[in-house]
Nucleic acid binder design. Structure first.
Length: 895
RNA sequence: GGGUUUGUAGCUCAGUUGGUUAGAGCGCCACGUUGACAUCGUGGAGGUCUCCAGUUCAAAUCUGGACAGACCCACCA
């Protein structure tokens, strides 16, 4: 027993008074760093690398959820004796961050071009640093037990070394190539976008039917006519059969031009007139068609989204301006057949800035996903990445995606993957590690020593660097990263101890963006999988199931909620009700009710510590009361369940079990019982139960549990050992199942009496008399006499007999094996009681009939397992017994 | 167009391999300061488990279909 026990504990838990101090205590203990954990040599590693938040601002509820789940896993494994590492970091998020800073400097009347590359990047760095500091503070506020000594950034020196070396590896292997391809181009960002960075939006526009030489064909973009080099039809389309292979002269707004008619399967003969104009430079499909038939492409739209100087009088117009002008001119020339209004189609937009995407040919760097390479055992990136999740690669178990159904999505995406465009025409990010000098090209970690080499202007897709996150973060400095035998080698103890990481916990929305990219980069660069499990959490939505967004004004800020209800409550609200891959609705009310739970645990502890007093001495199992046994058994089961659930990532279920046990079994029943229980072991039982309960609650609500722990122990709960059920089994081994559940009978009797009081509206201060005839159960019921009397039953006199005289003027309760009488004593009249019993009687009869019906069914008797039939027969016996008793009693009432 | 997913009490959701008189929390109603907690306690009302068919002795649970919603992928001129 500690002296601290006498310390006054506040009536309600006030998170603000403790959280900051507790976090500091954890941090200064050093336990977030696995190196400082006192563990045996052979302790297993457990690692999670934090998905790095973008340095574009502040964290939202989605981040809060992610931090909560990962902290639960980390704390759970740390307590279970693993060398637990949770490695934090942030992402430079190239386009997103650059866009944000461009907006900021625009307010000062500046642009990135007016500032120049160097000065602009300095501004971005400054912004990123500020953002980073805010984020770090928020991560700490959430109670995250991550190791700050290893913190990483996707754009720092160590990560840059990894990026440059992997680029070099892939380049030398022929997987990275430079080529002129049609890419998604954002005219505002002035950069390419990956396929999955493009978003689509429904739009109602016009469909123009053009008179096009011998054809009439439809297009939504008449301005691209200037870049047409062919007309395509379906090979089996009889209407155009004769025309295939021939050249035709077409009248255009800038004079005549020639197109070739080609037959291609991708053309839908049902759509429009079945003939398609082909603009190879400004459409992905057209580009593919043209490539198949050796049709040249003609670029007419430039990087600003404007018509190029080969467009005559339309030169310099935006595509939209050109469209209007061209349509007007074509109408005057009689080249428009008709215009269809209200044509529904989809616009492609930049996912960062919502600008309309312009497909255009551009010289870019790509990763070839189909090329087979010795580095992957003669397989392609695509093949290896599918296998990694399907059956496992490099003699490892397969990567498990939780929930499993997302594996299908992953396969579909991977199978359809096209070459990945990795260059971006922005300034913020890892610069492409390629240098040019005249016709020469150099790819490497640093610029060649001689003068005259110029580095590629472009930077790399942000996912190229975040794809290396699991291993690049495990290098402590650039010197540890090297190329050896065509593989990247990380020469650090961390890499040995913690890679592959145990689980990647992230949202399903970035399964393709990021998770797939990590599998690509890791399998290729280091010949290993990045993680064993992928746990995908759902999105956090508002209480109406809508996405939270600033424009909708429905954002719940985690910091506000922490301020108002505390971190623990905020965390718990994100855990309870969340299942993998499923979105979760969050409301302030939910967080408030979790605050109540946290406070309840506080008060449970306050009561035990201050009033009951803790006692750490060993429990004498021969002196346990019925209630003692039940609560010990309950705790045992709880420890078992929570442990196994957490191993299976069942966060919500385990938190609900904890909540249910704490509030109902412990507070409402056992704690109430101890107030009147003369058992000698209750202090010891409560001490054991409370301590273990705090331990298993700790990963979920670390602050309040640690705060309470301070009351009776000098050690940190953070590094306490996770409880096992062995101790409980030792204590309870002498008792059988019936013993361990006897307290349930006591509860039933008490509830039944309370029920009658409430139903008959017996005044609260009115004491009642209760007579129980208990038959075989008499000894047991007598042992529960005090509890039955005191636990809010308002009993003045309680008589417990084996059997006795018939009592007529009483309320009657027929419990499973006992009969309870409450003499009217002027409280109730016979009429009311008769009605109540008749009501009950008819219910039991209805129930009995339904079971009888079942048992009269021969097929049931023949086919159902014997246990099931026996169970039904038992039910009948019980119901019949009850009916008989009630009938007899009603007769007595009548007399 | 392809795919995934959801439909259980007014609301949010549990419901393990088919066998429960279908559960919890919030909300609602009625009581209530009994050795911690009104951020609390006690009791109660409230459900044709979306609908239709099928499999089975037995379906909230399995199968098929319908209806309604959510999401993802592809993209058509």
């Amino acid at each position: 027993m500690s002296k601290k026990e006498t310390r006054e504990i506040a009536k309600t838990y006030s998170p603000k008074d403790y959280e900051e101090e507790i976090y500091k205590k954890w941090e200064s203990s050093g336990a977030f760093n696995p190196k400082n954990l006192k563990l045996p040599e052979n302790a297993k590693g457990y690692s999670i690398v934090m998905p790095p938040p973008n340095v574009t601002g502040t964290l939202h509820m989605g981040h809060a959820g992610m931090l909560a789940y990962q902290d639960i896993l980390t704390r759970f494994h740390r307590m279970r004796g693993f060398r637990a590492l949770w490695l934090p970091g942030t992402d430079h998020a190239a386009i997103a961050t650059q866009t944000k800073v461009e907006k900021l400097i625009k307010e000062e009347g500046l642009s990135r071009h007016s500032l120049g590359r160097k000065a602009f990047l300095a501004r971005v760095d400054e912004f990123a640093q500020k953002s980073h500091d805010t984020i770090e503070n928020q991560i700490k506020k959430m109670g995250s037990s991550c190791d700050w000594s290893r913190e990483a950034f996707t754009l720092d020196k160590t990560r840059n070394k990894a990026v440059n070396l992997v680029f070099k590896l892939m380049y030398e292997d022929g997987l990275i190539y430079r080529g002129e391809r049609v890419v998604n181009w954002c005219p505002r960002c002035h950069s390419t976008l990956a396929d999955d960075e493009v978003e689509y939006k429904e739009e109602t526009g016009k469909l123009y039917w053009l008179k096009y030489g011998p054809f009439v064909l439809a297009t939504a973009r008449p301005e691209t006519k200037l870049g047409d080099t062919a007309v395509a039809v379906h090979p089996s389309d009889k209407r155009y059969k004769e025309m295939v292979g021939k050249d035709y002269e077409i009248q255009g707004v800038l004079g005549k031009f020639t197109v070739k008619v080609i037959a291609d399967r991708s053309v839908d003969p049902e759509f429009g007139s079945g003939a398609v104009k082909v603009t190879p430079a400004h459409s992905f499909i057209d580009n593919e068609i043209a490539a198949r038939h050796g049709i040249p492409m003609k670029k007419i739209i430039d990087e600003d989204g404007k018509m190029m100087d080969n467009c005559g009088k339309y030169t310099g117009m935006t595509t939209l301006e050109a469209r209007e002008a061209i349509v007007k001119d074509m109408q005057e020339m009689g080249l428009i057949d008709h215009i269809e209004e209200n044509y529904e189609h989809k616009l492609s937009l930049c996912y960062r800035c919502d600008t309309v995407i312009e497909p255009l040919p551009s010289l870019q760097w790509f990763i070839d996903v189909n090329k087979k390479t010795n580095n992957l055992g003669g397989k392609s990136i695509k093949e290896i990445c599918v296998e990694a999740v399907k059956s496992g690669v490099f003699e490892k178990e397969k990567i498990n995606i939780i929930p499993e159904r997302f594996e299908k999505n992953y396969f579909n995406w991977m199978n359809d993957l096209r070459d990945w465009c990795i260059s971006r025409q922005i300034w913020y990010g890892h610069r492409v590690p390629v240098w040019y000098k005249d016709e020469e090209i150099f790819v490497g970690e640093e610029a060649p020593a001689e003068e005259g080499w110029l580095q590629d202007e472009d930077t790399l897709d942000t996912w190229f660097s975040s794809g290396m996150w699991t291993f690049s973060t495990l290098a402590n400095n650039p010197e540890q990263i090297k190329i050896k035998n065509g593989k990247l080698v990380i020469n650090s103890a961390d890499f040995k101890n913690f890679h592959p990481t145990n689980v990647l916990e992230t949202g399903y929305d970035i399964l393709f963006f990021w998770v797939a990219r990590m599998i690509i980069m890791t399998t290729y660069a280091i010949g290993d999988i990045p993680f064993k499990d992928v746990y995908l959490h759902g999105l956090i939505l508002d209480e109406n199931g809508k996405k939270m967004s600033k424009s909708k004004g429905n954002v719940i800020d985690p910091l506000d909620m922490i301020e108002k209800f505390g971190t623990d409550a905020t965390r718990l609200s994100l855990v309870i009700g969340s299942t993998p891959g499923k979105d979760i609705k969050l409301s302030e009310g939910k967080i408030e009710s979790m605050r109540n739970m946290v406070n309840k645990l506080w008060n449970i502890s306050r009561y035990i510590i201050q009033t009951i007093e803790v006692d750490n001495s060993p429990i004498d199992k021969t002196k346990l009361t019925i209630a003692d046994k039940t609560i010990l058994q309950g705790t045992r089961n709880l420890i078992e369940k929570v442990s196994s659930d957490l191993k299976e990532y069942k966060f919500s279920r385990s938190a609900e079990l904890l909540k249910d046990f704490s509030w109902n079994e412990l507070a409402d029943w056992y704690l109430e019982a101890t107030k009147f229980d003369s058992g000698t072991e209750k202090k010891k039982v409560l001490t054991l139960v409370l301590k273990d309960l705090l331990k298993i609650w700790h990963p979920f609500i670390p602050f309040v549990t640690e705060t309470i722990w301070e009351q009776f122990n000098d050690s940190l709960l953070l590094t306490e050992k996770w409880p096992t059920i062995k101790q409980y089994n030792d204590i309870l081994s002498d008792f059988d199942d019936t013993d361990l559940h006897l307290f349930d009978k006591t509860k039933e009797i008490i509830s039944a009496i309370r029920n009658i009081r409430a139903e008959y509206k017996v005044a609260p201060d009115k004491k009642i008399e209760v007579i129980i005839y208990a038959g075989d159960k008499t000894d047991f019921i007598r042992s529960q006499e005090t509890l039955i009397k005191k636990l809010k039953t308002g009993i003045g006199r309680l008589i417990i007999e084996r059997s006795g005289n018939k009592i007529a003027n009483a309320v009657y309760i027929s419990q499973s094996e006992v009969e309870i009488y409450i003499p009217f004593g002027g409280l109730v009249d016979a009429e009311k009681e008769r009605n109540r019993l008749n009501e009950e009687l008819s219910q039991v009869r209805k129930y009995l009939n339904s079971i009888k019906k079942k048992l009269q069914n021969k097929a049931f008797i023949e086919n159902a397992p014997k246990e099931i039939v026996a169970k039904e027969e038992e039910k009948i016996a019980l119901a019949e017994e009850k009916i008989k008793k009630i009938e007899i009693f009603i007769k007595q009432l009548s007399n």
